[in-house]
Amino acid sequence: MQRYARLYLAFAKNSFLNALEYRLSFTVWSIATICYAVVYVASVQIIFGHVQTIGGWRVEQMLVLAATVMIVDGIVESIFGENMNALSGLINRGELDFVLSKPVNTRFYVSTRKFDWDPLVQVVLGGGVLWYAVGLLAEPVTWLGALLYLGMVVCACLIAYSLWFIIISVTFFVGRLNNVAHLYYNLIEASRVPTDVFRGALRLGLTFLLPVAFIATVPSQALMGLLSPTFALAAVAMTAGLLILSHLFWQLALTKYSSASS
C-alpha cells in the first residue's frame, strides 16, 4: 500500500513536470474551461428565467447539480482521463508488454500513470459555483449532508472510471467498438439533468442500467439533505459492483492480449 502511494506520488510528480513543459496547454485549457463554465451556468440562469422548477429542482439546486458535474468530471479526467485515452494506444503499440513484465499491478499502472493537471481548473471552478449555490439554498447544509456529499462524489468518480475502464477493456478483445469509447462523455452530458425529470422505465434505466443518476443527482441530493438512505447504499453497492465487474473484464482482456499479440 505504502509502495503504491510512493509510486503514485512519483507518477503525479512526473506528470506535473510534464505539464510544466507545455505551459501554453495549461493556459489554453484554463481559458476554455472558464468559458465553458460561464456559458453553462448562464444557460441554467436563462432557462430559469422562464420556469420556476425543472423536475422539482429550483435554480439554486440546479446550480448545485451543475457544480457537482464539473467537480466529478474534473476529478475523473484529472486522475484517469489521459490514461484511459492512452490505453488503446498502449495496446496497439505493444507497449503494454513493458507494463506486463514489471512487478507492479497492471491495472494500477495503466489507470494512474499520467495525472492530468489541467482539468483541476474545472474542479476549482466547480467548487466556486458550489459555494455560491449553497449560499442561495433555502435549507442550510448540515455537516452530515456535507460528509455524505463527499462520499457520494467519491462513488460517482469511481463509477465513471469503472464504466470507462470496462469499455476500454471490451475494445481490447473486440478490436474496435466505434464511438462507444465516447460513452464516458455522454454519461457526463446526461448527468447534467436531474434524473427526477424522467419517469418510469427511463428513470430506472438511467439509475441502474446506465448509472447516470449516481454521477451528479445523487451527490447533489445528499448535500441538500434530500437523499434517502436506500439510495446512499445503492450508490455504494453500484460502485463496488462496477469496480468488481471492471476487474473481471480487465483480467479477461489481459488473457486475450497474452494469447494473441505478437
Binding site: R3, R6, L7, A10, F11, K13, N14, L17, N18, E21, Y22, R93, G94, E95, D97, F98, K102, P103, V104
Partner: peptide, 21 residues
C-alpha cells in the same frame, strides 16, 4: 519499443522504475 517517458528527461523514468522495483 520505448518505456522511457517521451516528454521527460530519462532520469524521471529511472525514478519511476526505482519505485516499481
Amino acid at each position: 519499443k520505448n518505456q522511457v517517458w517521451w516528454d521527460l528527461p530519462p532520469m524521471e523514468t529511472f525514478l519511476i522504475n526505482k519505485e516499481i522495483y
